[in-house]
Design a protein around this nucleic acid. Structure first.
Length: 428
RNA sequence: GCGAAUGUGGUGAAGUGGUUAACACAGCGGAUUGUGGCUCCGUCACUCGUGGGUUCGAAUCCCAUCAUUCGCCCCA
């Protein structure tokens, strides 16, 4: 039986791996500029960490977690998301006692037991941020701003920001009552899923795809009519700041998000490209979740965050044929003719490597052809050729495949050519 | 959890019951070449995801199973 990778997981090699690290590096650099520092938490947590934070009834808890008992019969879960882990850390260590804001970013694998499909895997990578402390609409706006900057900097286009408010506890409670009243006598017209949602979480009926065209959906009560004044004002102020930051956004009145912990503003950044299979996929999503601290038996902690799906970003970069992430390849192949030249070539190769250059020499071949093949495989920029003539004169022939030049230089000039230290000769 | 499509060598694929599974690219071996990626010759699937069945005979039909991909639910 052949051993294969586990369903819904991915191996990255070559340019894929480069791209993955490029996204990490570019985005986390921006997070640092916004004053965020890294948090690294374990991949495993007590199952309760997610049950409490995400909500017993959420789909993540109900059917998507990798949960198992360890040898001590403790229920362990591979993290399906990071927000709960960061909150656990924050409350566990009583960091709420620290003055000012706490701003963390993270980057790492998450696990969700779902059927894989376009832009969705069982092990996937999230890059996200969490910000705790006194809430202020500017903070919410600036975090969206940061997400936008991250996405712009990795060169992902065709994105749009969608934002909505689902209000604070009071607003939402009133709204839920109104929704239930409205739909009470209309249940027969709704799809089976919505009948379940009606019981479980009426808000979710709003973004049902099946029933979205129905007239009764269009006429359903709107959250904005049930918002407490303070919630409404908070949301409007966020929008004002977004305008000031020059960010374009769409207000999606139907967007409610699936994780139970959100309060007030929620937002998504969506790939908007009708030609693509990935159209409509959220690459970034987040919002405010002021009530989560209490779930961890901590005080009320005002909090906001977002997460981005790294594999989704990679897929979109591929579609756009975006190759900005590729590092410039300035590697060198040393080609030799004859045994004396091979010895000289080894010495030369080693000298180049010691000077931080990527240099390779064919271990086996003596004829030209396979050695040129090596340089093609490496996609080497420089090819240095050493034969008997060069040995005799302490020279080498250097081809620059980018500038398409070929020059013969003395060994003593090599350091100048590559702007490196020291010198080399062929004597040994 | 539900629904659909697909599964032939490293890759792309032809082949729908009958002798040695076409072709292309890549690979490998060689010829030629102090400067290659051109050309030429040779070689490369005891086998068609896996396991059963039907048949004189199956990559081709049937069943099961696995995997991949896509959609739903939900989500980054």
């Amino acid at each position: 039986m052949k051993i294969t990778k586990i369903k819904g997981t991915l191996d990255f090699t070559g340019n894929e791996a480069v791209k993955y690290r490029y996204i990490e590096k570019t985005c986390t650099n921006i997070a640092k500029k916004f004053g965020f520092s890294e948090i690294i938490t374990p991949i495993i947590e007590q199952t309760d960490c997610f049950v409490r934070a995400t909500g017993e009834a959420s789909d993540i808890v109900q059917k998507e977690m990798y949960t198992f008992l360890d040898r001590g019969e403790r229920s362990i879960t591979l993290r399906p998301e990071e927000t709960a882990c960061v909150m656990r850390h924050f409350v566990e260590n009583k960091k709420y006692a620290n003055p000012g804001l706490t701003k963390y970013y993270y980057f790492g694998p998450m696990f969700r037991y779902e059927r894989p499909q376009a832009g969705r895997y069982r092990q996937f990578t999230q890059l996200g941020v969490e910000c705790y402390g006194n809430e202020n609409p500017l903070m919410d706006a600036d975090i969206i701003n940061m997400a936008w900057q991250m996405l712009s900097s990795i060169g992902v286009d065709n994105l749009k920001i969608c934002i909505n408010t689902i209000g604070g506890k009071e607003s939402r409670a009133k709204y839920q009552v109104a929704l239930k009243e409205y739909f009470a006598d209309k249940l027969d017209e709704l799809c089976p899923d919505c009948k379940v949602r009606y019981q479980k979480n009426p808000l979710r009926m709003l973004d049902c795809k099946v029933d979205s065209g129905l007239e009764i959906m269009a006429n359903a009560p709107k959250i904005k009519d049930y918002l407490e004044d303070c919630d409404k004002e908070y949301f409007d102020t966020i929008l004002t700041y977004l305008d000031a930051l020059g960010l374009k956004y769409e207000i999606s009145e139907r967007m409610v998000r699936g994780l139970d912990y959100y309060t007030n503003d929620v937002f998504e950044i969506i790939y908007d490209n009708p030609k693509s299979q990935l159209n409509g996929l959220a690459v970034c999503a987040g919002g405010r979740y002021n009530d989560m601290g209490a779930e961890f038996d901590g005080p009320t902690i005002q909090a906001i965050g977002f997460a981005m799906g790294v594999e989704r970003l990679m897929a979109i970069m591929d579609e756009a044929e975006n190759t900005d992430y590729l590092e410039q390849n300035d590697s060198i192949t040393v080609i030799t003719l004859g045994q004396n030249a091979k010895l000289a070539g080894v010495k030369l190769t080693n000298y180049l490597r010691k000077n931080n250059l990527h240099a390779e020499i064919d271990y086996a071949a003596n004829s030209l052809k396979p050695q040129f093949k090596l340089s093609e495989r490496m996609n080497a920029r420089y090819i240095i050729i050493i034969g008997e003539d060069e040995i005799a004169n302490q020279e080498m022939t250097i081809k620059d495949t980018v500038l398409k030049t070929e020059t013969k230089i003395k060994c003593s000039e090599l350091n100048k050519y590559f702007n490196i230290e020291g010198s080399i000769d062929y004597a040994y």
